[in-house]
Design a protein around this nucleic acid. Structure first.
Lengths: 150, 150
DNA sequence: AATGAAACGAATTGCTA
DNA sequence: TAGCAATTCGTTTCATT
């Protein structure tokens, strides 16, 4: 499926997608043409989903990550539909998961400050009835990478 | 600081960094040179941290997100140093936060399956003494974006 | 499958307004 | 700061091994 050369390419690209084909070719000891073909194939076969720019949070004054833990007793389709589309539409929600265990949903929300979180929270509960919500603020981001282990 | 044109550029790039300068210039109603210069400036001023490729998790058979909640009684420098470098070095840890509230640390870990998680867990606790660890598995990833709200 | 060179298109720079 | 034109550089294709 994926040989070690393909994996090496994916690892380089998930660390730095601004590398040129020539750069990548050089580090994996290939010339540009076969390297380029491999990258094309990886894209065509769907291994590479997209390329994105990661912005500097400090520079943008977007200081806080808030984790939101939601327990619900509502499990009907209408509520779920309503909840999911609220998550989709709210740009502060960067990640949302349906969980096993005692918490039903876990969100990671990014906001400028606590009052921005308060506004977000009010906005969310106005869109969807939520019974049991608890929030926990991140004091420090120790690690953040989009690179998955392959 | 950032005018609305710069923000529009950042928003385009954090959605899709494979857009050409010409594409971006067109959507924000500019010609390529001033658009290119703005992008350069945003990079030089540190607004754009990096460009990365996001890989397809399904295709790579990396199914599960596990959230790990850690409470600790150890707060000395040596332990923290040991813990942080373990997080840094373990590729399964994609995100790690020091939290407010009753949980001290929250990790997002990505693994292939439950047995891979078990192996990761054993590996982690062999590197760092951890007293109170609880894990919760994601059943569904409802939303994931790297785009911050600006 | 990989190479090297040629053709093409996009990125970068300098000049003008 | 924006626009235009020229140049440079990376990407894509193709003939060859």
């Amino acid at each position: 499926m994926l040989d070690s050369t393909d994996k090496a390419i994916l690892n380089l690209l998930q660390q730095d997608a601004s590398l040129s084909v020539a750069d990548i070719a050089e580090t994996i000891n290939l010339t540009v043409s076969p390297c380029w073909r491999r990258i094309q194939n990886l894209e065509n076969r769907g291994y590479i989903e997209k390329r994105v720019a990661l912005l500097n949070r400090q520079q943008l004054d977007l200081g806080i990550d808030v984790f939101v833990f939601i327990k619900t007793n509502q499990h009907n389709d209408e509520w779920i539909e309503q909840f999911y589309s609220a998550l989709e539409v709210l740009p502060e929600v960067l990640e949302a998961y349906r969980m096993s265990g005692d918490v039903d949903y876990l969100l990671r929300v990014v906001v400028k400050d606590i009052s921005a979180y308060d506004a977000f929270y009010k906005n969310l509960v106005s869109k969807v009835p939520l019974a049991d919500v608890s929030s926990s603020f991140a004091m420090e981001r120790i690690k953040f990478t989009t690179a998955v282990p392959i």
